[in-house]
Design a protein around this nucleic acid. Structure first.
Lengths: 134, 134
DNA sequence: AGTTGACCTTCAACTGACTTTAACGTTCAT
DNA sequence: ATGAACGTTAAAGTCAGTTGAAGGTCAACT
């Protein structure tokens, strides 16, 4: 029997996040003591760890709900898991591509400003105002 | 004189976004017609384009406010602009690094699931539940 | 027994950068 | 004159939590 602070320590997230996960249905309602406190068992904490790992990997709350539902059916084929993972990889790869292009544009922009001059001569501000060339 | 829809077309953003920018003080209150409609002039649209470019480059609303204030003082030195840009580049580079590590972890996770098997044998779900090794 | 300090509870509001919705007014072409 | 396509506002929704207020509980120490 662990308090919410114990669970938080073990899962490596704030207690407020655990309450939030319960509130949005990502975790089932916790057992309660006579004092109203939440108490957790090892199995509950494993589920919480699962959730936190998946979140760290960038899965949305909705996807984690899906993953948990899938994990609860041990005899089903696991293709749906593969699919979720592949989608997540695609979306991460896409964001990386976008950010790399962004980085390149920022570097080009940086090159437009040699150094010490006035705002009115700043290539950065000019490029932000005018052209389509960054 | 352009309506908000004209301005939106020219700036490449939804009209709702323009209203939002005005509401949060990123744009000055627009001129109004007798009907209450907003009307924009070329200079207003230039400012809006500036804002949208900066937002596309990932600058926060607060940073765009700074950039605009800087751009409004043409005789000041432009080092502050350089600094804002350098910070933005740092933060983008940092996000890229994080996402690349995330991508690598997702790929390792993907390798844990060969293909057709049941949930209970799925290396993906196992890795999410158990170890620190991804 | 009292008190301190660390824990627990709920509910509401805040974050960023918008988007969406509802309910209503205007303009224009047919 | 009527309908589509525009405009207005305020409020709520999005995502994934975090923060704060106001209060109840528990364990240890004096």
């Amino acid at each position: 029997m662990f308090t919410i602070a114990d669970a938080a320590r073990r899962a490596g997230c704030p207690a407020s996040t655990i309450r939030y996960y319960e509130r949005v249905g990502l975790l089932p309602p916790a057992q309660r003591g006579n004092n109203g406190y939440r108490y957790y068992q090892s199995a509950d904490i494993e589920r919480l760890v699962f959730v936190n790992r998946a979140r760290e990997l960038g899965f949305s709350i909705a996807s984690v709900v899906d993953l948990l539902r899938l994990a609860d059916h041990p005899l089903q084929p696991c293709e749906a898991v593969d699919t979720l993972l592949a989608n997540q990889l695609d979306s991460v790869a896409g964001r990386i591509r976008q950010l790399c292009e962004l980085e390149a544009r920022l570097r080009r922009l940086q090159a437009a400003c040699g150094g010490h001059h006035q705002m009115q001569d700043c290539g950065i501000l000019a490029a932000l105002s005018e052209p389509d060339s960054l």
